[in-house]
């Protein structure tokens, strides 16, 4: 497996680019790359030349997360002011604005069928599930708090939820917290199942393998990537190599590789079979906040976005 640089756009945004995802192709157009930035805009880009397709403004305080519906018709963007805006990708009409105060909004993820949007709820120590037909809050998956916390315990915010991921069969939601624990939920019964331990620093990104509903990857500030059997509660392996926080992670559509972006300014490609980094890209000059593989079925693509305001597109083969 190999990455080859295709195109880089310097100053793609006016400020740090914090998040990116691919919007799947529809009947009328090809797949698009969706990026969000501290400059309070969300931009849509046409591959492979990364031609600016549209700019959405209206967010306040920086866009922290974007998610695309599997149909490719609509997408959601969330900002530091804790609003989620759901919009039509082609017309940019706002479909709905979601908020669940006092819960903040961090990573977001549509379930594989596209019926539910899962939102990492920050300090509320929960994942909020929104119905994508009615845009109403259908469930709150709360992490159970340790019993009888000491009054002096400063760490009750430890279960601050940062990241969220759906298993490919849509039955499980996993969420990662500031204290490094990962919690797994049974969506059907809206029930907490168990914790996965091993990290002791924030887990910024979670991703399930698209081919194995048990295999979960986590990216943490401890510079490690962990590989869990989320059902069997086992830590299968840990991969080190990044020099600083691992901020972002994505699994390739065939499930054979993962890509990670780190504060050490690099993008790494890992062979899951070998559990080793096979390639390191050093084209970014600041923290890499987002990496995302192109949708299955399309050409092998990987995009990365960074604090250096740039977007890079690679060919993955």
């Amino acid at each position: 497996m190999k990455l080859a640089g295709l195109k880089s756009i310097e100053n793609a945004h006016d400020e740090s680019v914090w998040t990116a995802t691919w919007v799947p192709a529809t009947e009328s157009r090809s797949a698009l790359l969706l990026t969000g930035s501290l400059d309070e805009t969300v931009k849509l880009w046409k591959p492979d030349d990364l031609i600016l397709h549209h700019t959405n403004s209206g967010h306040c305080l920086g866009v922290v997360s974007v998610a695309a519906h599997p149909s490719g018709h609509f997408a959601a963007s969330a900002s530091l002011d804790s609003f989620v805006r759901v919009f039509d990708v082609d017309t940019n009409n706002t479909i709905s604005t979601l908020e669940a105060p006092p819960s903040e909004v961090w990573q977001m993820c549509f379930d594989p069928k596209g019926t539910i949007l899962a939102v990492a709820g920050g300090g509320s120590a929960s994942v909020k599930l929104w119905d994508t037909a009615t845009w109403t809050l259908v469930a709150t998956l709360s992490i159970p708090r340790p019993e009888a916390p000491k009054p002096s315990d400063k760490n009750s915010s430890k279960k601050f939820v940062l990241s969220v991921a759906w298993s490919p069969d849509g039955k499980r939601v996993a969420c990662g917290s500031m204290d490094g624990t990962i919690s797994v939920f049974d969506v059907g019964r809206a029930k907490f199942l168990h914790h996965l331990e091993g990290h002791f620093m924030p887990v910024r990104t979670l991703a399930y393998s698209p081919t194995d509903p048990h295999l979960l990857f986590s990216a943490s500030d401890d510079a490690h990537v962990h590989m869990y059997d989320a059902e069997g509660k086992t830590l299968i392996g840990a991969m080190s190599g990044h020099a600083s926080w691992v901020l972002s992670l994505d699994v390739s559509p065939n499930g054979a590789a993962i890509a990670t972006g780190s504060s050490d300014r690099t993008v790494r490609l890992w062979d899951i079979g070998m559990r080793a980094a096979v390639q390191t890209m050093t084209n970014h000059t600041d923290q890499v906040w987002g990496v995302t593989f192109g949708p299955a079925g399309g050409p092998g693509r990987l995009a990365s976005v960074s604090d250096d305001k740039s977007i890079s597109l690679y060919d993955y083969s």
């Binding site: 331990e197 091993g198 059997d229 509660k233 086992t234 830590l235 299968i236 070998m274």
Partner: peptide, 17 residues
């Protein structure tokens, strides 16, 4: 050379891994 990897361990007891 990374030819031997540590076997999977229980993720609930991994503190002492």
């Amino acid at each position: 050379d990374g030819k031997e990897n540590s076997p999977p361990v229980d993720a609930c007891a991994s503190v002492l891994r």
